[in-house]
Simulated assay, not measured.
Amino acid sequence: MDIQQQAAVSDPARQSGAGGATAAAGTATNGQVINDVGRLPLVDFHEACGRILSAINTVIDGKEEAARLALTVLLAQGHLLVEDVPGVGKTMLAKTLARTIDCSVHRIQFTPDLLPSDVTGVSIYNQDKHSFEFRPGPVFANIVIGDEINRASAKTQSALLECMEEHQVTVDGRSYRLEPPFMVVATQNPIEMEGTYPLPEAQRDRFMARISMGYPDPRAEMDMLENHQSTSPLADVRPVVGMADVRAMVATVQDVYVSPAVKEYTVNIGRATREHPYLRLGASPRALLQLLRAAKAAAALDGRDFVLPDDIASVSEAVLSHRLMLDRKAVTAGEDAPGIVASILAKVPVSGEARRPAV
């Protein structure tokens, strides 16, 4: 397998240092001033998000919501699973998001014969130096696009577990840090099951959100046929933000305030999934943590520095649905995970304190 090795491998001795995704103080690539704690002012944050979304929407017609959610996951330091039928733009969305950022990008085509070392890298003996040297795999990038992830064996899929959760790779007893920002965008086709290996629950839980592209509306398809029939629109996409910008934007999201009442509302939603009669498996503690992180990013995208219950509700379906395991009674009753999440949101009460902005 031909693997591009564009990302430098960090020395393991640096592992004890902070690995947070905060930018250094100074000036970002677009001239915006980053304050002394590595955060962008909220106005500049919103303007940078607008540039990213505008660039994505020039390529993906009629999918503004999917583009916004993909950006939300990136800013919340999560990973995205794009699940839909072939030809609706799953890989194109991942590629376009990667192109809008001036960072390293690697794409992995998952196949049944792919090995874990093809993903993480391998130690090769150097005869001149009489020692082993680590050759990093394609996972050493800021954005990793995993195309058709469910076509690889469970053993190869498990190679992503450590890097997605801990942002590091361990090979031959040595750990190598993955530089922030780090995001895995994986695609899979839920219709064709022949020759596929379903993702285990432990791995599905590591994806912050799952989205489905869906078919575009007739107007968007007409625009696509009119504008994209001769050349790929992806060829015209240029980076609109740099890595320093993204790190500062992530730090801005981390600084968004969450009141105790909103945290209680989040916990109540999680407990409701665990007690629901149609579910065998509810939301994990990791799911609630990622739900809150996604809500903070959604609030920042709306120009606020505090989270409202509406932010929690707006990302709940994408964050929770793919983690829930339905009971047989649910299948018999014709229920699905998104519908159950919607019913839980309709029943879980919201206190008045949760709707009040931070003072």
Results as ranks from 00 to 15, higher is better:
residue 220 A to R: 06
residue 321 S to K: 05
residue 165 E to S: 12
residue 188 Q to L: 02
residue 24 A to V: 07
residue 35 N to G: 06
residue 313 A to C: 13
residue 152 A to C: 05
residue 181 P to E: 03
residue 150 N to R: 09
residue 155 K to L: 03
residue 181 P to K: 00
residue 143 I to R: 00
residue 251 A to W: 01
residue 142 N to Q: 00
residue 229 Q to S: 15
residue 264 E to R: 14
residue 104 S to P: 08
residue 343 S to F: 09
residue 320 L to C: 10
residue 26 G to L: 05
residue 87 G to H: 08
residue 242 G to A: 01
residue 165 E to H: 01
residue 72 T to K: 04
residue 197 Y to G: 10
residue 22 T to R: 09
residue 228 H to M: 07
residue 286 R to P: 00
residue 51 R to A: 12
residue 274 R to M: 04
residue 190 P to K: 12
residue 222 M to E: 13
residue 114 L to S: 02
residue 52 I to T: 10
residue 9 V to K: 12
residue 112 P to F: 01
residue 170 T to Q: 06
residue 277 P to V: 09
residue 104 S to D: 14
residue 252 T to S: 10
residue 317 E to Y: 03
residue 33 V to W: 04
residue 14 R to K: 08
residue 324 L to I: 11
residue 118 D to L: 07
residue 61 D to Y: 07
residue 236 D to M: 13
residue 72 T to R: 03
residue 93 L to H: 04
residue 315 V to K: 01
residue 87 G to F: 03
residue 53 L to V: 10
residue 250 V to W: 01
residue 221 E to W: 00
residue 294 A to V: 01
residue 121 G to D: 04
residue 265 Y to C: 07
residue 73 V to S: 14
residue 140 F to C: 06
residue 320 L to N: 11
residue 131 S to K: 15
residue 258 V to M: 08
residue 159 A to E: 15
residue 309 P to I: 09
residue 188 Q to H: 06
residue 244 A to W: 02
residue 304 R to N: 08
residue 257 Y to H: 15
residue 222 M to Q: 09
residue 244 A to P: 11
residue 45 F to D: 05
residue 69 L to S: 05
residue 68 R to V: 07
residue 250 V to N: 05
residue 32 Q to E: 14
residue 202 A to Q: 06
residue 274 R to D: 13
residue 176 Y to F: 10
residue 172 D to V: 08
residue 62 G to Y: 06
residue 165 E to N: 02
residue 266 T to P: 03
residue 90 K to M: 11
residue 206 R to H: 01
residue 160 L to F: 15
residue 311 D to G: 03
residue 295 A to F: 06
residue 134 F to A: 09
residue 304 R to E: 11
residue 179 E to S: 15
residue 339 G to E: 02
residue 340 I to L: 04
residue 179 E to H: 07
residue 16 S to Y: 11
residue 355 R to W: 12
residue 47 E to T: 14
residue 27 T to S: 09
residue 214 G to I: 00
residue 197 Y to L: 14
residue 81 L to W: 02
residue 273 T to Q: 08
residue 22 T to Y: 14
residue 50 G to P: 06
residue 330 A to V: 05
residue 224 M to Y: 14
residue 207 F to I: 08
residue 256 V to N: 07
residue 332 T to M: 14
residue 6 Q to R: 10
residue 191 I to D: 05
residue 344 I to F: 04
residue 32 Q to I: 11
residue 191 I to S: 03
residue 83 E to M: 13
residue 104 S to Y: 07
residue 270 G to C: 10
residue 337 A to K: 04
residue 261 A to M: 04
residue 23 A to V: 06
residue 10 S to V: 11
residue 174 R to A: 12
residue 147 D to W: 00
residue 63 K to R: 15
residue 147 D to H: 00
residue 243 M to W: 05
residue 266 T to Q: 08
residue 114 L to M: 06
residue 159 A to N: 01
residue 143 I to Q: 01
residue 118 D to M: 06
residue 163 C to S: 13
residue 7 A to H: 13
residue 333 A to D: 12
